[in-house]
Design a protein around this nucleic acid. Structure first.
Length: 303
DNA sequence: GGCAGTCAAGTACGC
DNA sequence: GCGTACTTGACTGCC
């Protein structure tokens, strides 16, 4: 078990998510921005290494407009050395890495233009992980997509489209349940057809489920991950009090997390904390989990 | 320097 | 059919 947080570190004074407006696009702007983002990513990873947080989600904004037609610059070649260096650091210290395209990536959209744009984004995200030389356990997680008035047909469309994907994408793609449309059970059904691994989001599951406790599904989820996929990834969050249902918590609730660890003690997985204060809660979570036998501790990998 | 409006992209839903 | 919520950090223009 590794513990981590997504995309942003609020403690170190930089962000790997710098972007700019499409109207401001120039190759120079792109190069400057990516250079800055990669430099910050290295700082974040160094911070995470120091604090023993070995699971991290890399921001989709790392290369702004990478999947947009406006971007014809060969950033992959220009920054090949930086990507290799970061990848080496990741492998050396035993990090687990994920990426998570945003809501506009919809594999099952009836509109083939939307589908094609989604493919372009998946090509970009998998390319980042490939450039870093990461193995197949580094994943790109997406949701199943829309329902479009016919859920079985939309699930079929997802499966058919998945089958048609390039291996470079299929090797990394995993699906995650969401809080409104597709449950873990739906994702498991898609796995049955396609073999795609399933990420369980415990918070989304609490809001959208078929009546079964999250822990009861962990065995089935585990079975969707093959050896080369690594152990399952799980997303964890909790409800922010006083906000709309589904709003992610600002801070981790230690007692809830402790209970989650206890209830899931028979299963091993990497935990992504989708909590708004990011590394702060992740450090607290790590402290709470310090005696958990599942925890991977690799504080001095270079020693 | 601070602030409010805006940003590539889509879907679901209420009216 | 149209407008809005969703979700969210960063950018941009204006004061």
């Amino acid at each position: 078990m590794r513990i981590g947080y997504p995309c942003i570190n609020r403690s170190i004074g930089c962000t790997a998510s710098h972007t700019f407006r499409l109207a401001s696009y120039t190759e120079e702007r792109l190069i400057d921005t990516v250079k800055e983002n990669l430099a910050c990513l290295e700082k974040i990873l160094e911070y995470n290494r120091e604090h023993g947080m070995l699971f991290f989600r890399i921001t989709s904004d790392l290369v702004p407009f990478a999947s947009h037609p406006v971007c014809t610059y060969p950033w992959q070649e220009h920054f090949a050395e930086e990507f290799q260096r970061i990848g080496k650091f990741i492998r050396q210290h035993g990090f687990r890495i994920s990426m998570h395209p945003d809501q506009f990536v919809l594999m099952n959209a009836p509109d083939t233009n939307v589908f094609q744009r989604s493919i372009a984004d998946l090509v970009y995200q998998t390319k980042v992980l490939d450039l870093m030389g990461l193995d197949r356990s580094a994943k790109v997680q997406i949701h199943v997509g829309g329902v479009y008035g016919d859920k079985p047909a939309s699930m079929d469309r997802f499966s058919d489209r998945y089958e048609s994907l390039d291996h470079a994408i299929k090797n990394r793609l995993v699906i995650e349940n969401d809080e409104r449309l597709y449950t873990i059970t739906d994702c498991l059904a898609i796995h049955e057809r396609t073999g795609i691994p399933v990420i369980g989001d415990s918070f989304h599951h609490a809001l959208n489920n078929c009546g079964e406790p999250f822990v009861d599904l962990l065995k089935s989820i585990r079975a969707t991950w093959k050896v080369h996929d690594g152990i399952p990834m799980v997303d964890y969050s909790s409800q922010e009090p006083g906000k709309r249902t589904g709003a992610h918590a600002e801070h981790i609730v230690p007692e809830d997390f402790r209970q989650f660890l206890y209830q899931t003690r028979m299963a091993d997985f990497d935990i992504m904390l989708e909590i708004k204060d990011k590394e702060k809660s992740a450090r607290l979570a790590l402290d709470i989990a310090r005696d958990d036998p599942r925890l991977v501790i690799r504080k001095n990998a270079d020693a």
